[in-house]
Each structure stands twice: as structure tokens, then as C-alpha cells.
Computed example of a mutant assay.
Amino acid sequence: MPINEIAIGRPEDAYHPDSLKCALAEFISTLIFVFAGEGSGMAFSKLTNDSSTTPAGLVAAALAHAFGLFVAVSISANISGGHVNPAVTFGAFIGGHITLLRGILYWIAQLLGSTVACLLLKFSSGGLATSAFSLSSGVSVWNAFVLEIVMTFGLVYTVYATALDKRGIKNVGIIAPIAIGFIVGANILAGGAFDGASMNPAVSFGPALVSWDWTNHWVYWAGPLIGGGIAGLVYEFIFNHNTHEPLPIADI
């Protein structure tokens, strides 16, 4: 059962050289992902004179995030597991694939990566605003809350099926980062017009901090974390029960 695999971890999980290397990999991959994703939105806004979201803009955002995440996961998968998302890290923790202490280290690295990416974007674009995620007209916080739960469930479930399931790694291989990028791109097409389709607290945190706009920000934390946690529980309880291979103690 997943609950038996959950571990706080040892103090050295927060400062061991291997943990710090993993954190650095998460920082770099999150920076690359957010720079590409947020940057695409800023570029489109500049090209269209800050017009409202259009179908073309939604497709551009979906492609930029899908391609960016594919690269971000690929370059860090062999080092840190390629989480690039606090919700993925939380889902992995719920399933016993990472300790709490190392997970917190991942969170810090991911939030810093997103923040630095947004600062670099603001500087290199001549001071253009990094827009915080917001709700579209007619969409309530509870609509967005449920939407974020469902979309992040799909994302973290995909991560489990293609990357964390030890049975799948042998057969799927490089398909994992492709599938993860695709599900994010597809979810942006489905939910981007409603609440921006974050699915990632780090992606929401950087723009909110740099622009200092925290309106309804809790939705982009609560929704993804709940969705990621549910995905971890569902996959471990139903599909990975009695077949789970916990990470070696030395690697946790």
C-alpha cells in the first residue's frame, strides 16, 4: 500500500551532494520550461498588441509548453527523475517514490527556477510584464479549482504510467517525456481558455511573484496538489499494488 512507502527521509536528504545535484537539475529544467512557456505567451502578446486570448494564441501556448516540457523532462530524467513540477513531486511522494525532505528540496529548486526564468524574461524583453495566471470571464474559482484537479490528475497519472512504473520503463523508454509533454499541451488546449491551465504550482508562482499579482493564486496550488496526490494514490492502490518496487534506501 502506498501509505507504507511514504517516508520523511533522513536529514542528509536535504544536503547530500547527490540531493543537491538533483535539485540543481530541477532548477535548470524548470527554468528552461518556464522560460519557453511564459516567453511564448509574452511574445504572442507583443505581436498582437496585448489582445485577448485567441485560438492561435492557445495553440501556440500548447505547443510551446509541450515542446518545452518534453525537453525539460528529458534533460533531467536521468538525474532527478524530471519532475519539473511540485505537483508531480507531491504525487511521487504520496506513492513512496521520493522522501519528504528531498521533495521539499525539489520544490525549492522548482520555485527558484520559475522565478529566475521570469526575471530573465522581464529583463531580456525590455521590461514586459510576466502575466500571472488568471480566470477568464464567467469562470469561478471553484470551476478553476476542479479544472486544475482534473488536468493535473491526467498529467501525474501519465507520469506514473510512463516514468515511475518500473514495469513500464523497460517497454516505454523515451515515450515518457513525449507523453508528458503531449498531455500538458492537450490540457492547455482544453483548459487554457478558462484558467490558463497551469497544472504546475511553480509555473504559476514565478509570474505571480515577479508581477506581484496573487489574485486567486491558491487555486493554482490547491488544485494541482490535490490532483497530483489523487493520481499517485489511484495508480499505486489499483495498478501498482503488490508490484511496487521502492527506491533503494541509498537513492531515497
Rank of each mutant, 00 (worst) to 15 (best):
G168L: 02
A60N: 05
L100T: 09
G9L: 01
G232S: 10
S76F: 14
W142E: 02
T215V: 13
V88R: 01
W221C: 13
I104L: 12
L105C: 13
T89D: 14
H244D: 01
F237M: 14
A231Q: 10
S80W: 03
H241W: 11
S19E: 11
A144K: 00
F35L: 13
I238E: 05
Y15I: 12
E26T: 09
W218Y: 14
A56V: 10
G185V: 02
K21I: 11
H217I: 13
L20T: 03
S198I: 08
A66H: 02
S114F: 02
H83P: 14
I149F: 02
G227D: 11
I169W: 11
Y106T: 03
I149L: 09
V219E: 11
V71G: 03
P17C: 09
H241M: 09
I32C: 08
L105V: 15
D13L: 09
A43F: 00
V84F: 10
A186T: 13
V84Y: 10
G82M: 08
D213E: 15
L100E: 10
A208F: 00
V156G: 05
V139A: 08
F27A: 04
E26I: 06
N49V: 00
L121S: 02
A60C: 04
T30V: 15
A190Y: 07
K46L: 05
I188D: 00
I28S: 04
V34Y: 04
N200C: 06
I238W: 03
S52E: 03
F182Q: 00
P11M: 05
I238K: 08
T115H: 09
A117S: 07
V210N: 08
G173Y: 08
D165K: 01
G9P: 05
L120M: 14
V210K: 02
L112Q: 05
S40T: 07
I6L: 12
I3Q: 13
R10H: 12
Y220Q: 12
G232D: 05
I6S: 10
E148G: 07
T48R: 07
P55T: 08
D213N: 15
A129N: 08
S74N: 12
N4I: 07
H241R: 15
L155H: 09
S74A: 15
Y160V: 04
W107A: 14
S40C: 14
I28F: 00
C118L: 09
H217G: 11
L63N: 00
M199V: 15
V219N: 07
V210W: 01
A109I: 07
S134D: 03
T130W: 08
A163Y: 00
V141W: 13
T53C: 09
G127S: 01
G185S: 05
G227V: 04
A250G: 14
S76Q: 06
D13R: 08
W212P: 06
S51D: 15
A23S: 09
F133K: 14
I75M: 14
F194R: 02
L189T: 03
A132I: 01
A144C: 05
V156R: 10
K166H: 13
N187D: 09
F133D: 00
E245T: 12
Q110M: 08
M42G: 00
D165I: 03
Y15S: 02
G168E: 10
S198M: 06
V73S: 07
H16K: 10
V150H: 07
A66V: 05
P201W: 05
L119G: 11
G95H: 08
S140H: 10
K170S: 14
Y220N: 10
G96D: 09
G138V: 04
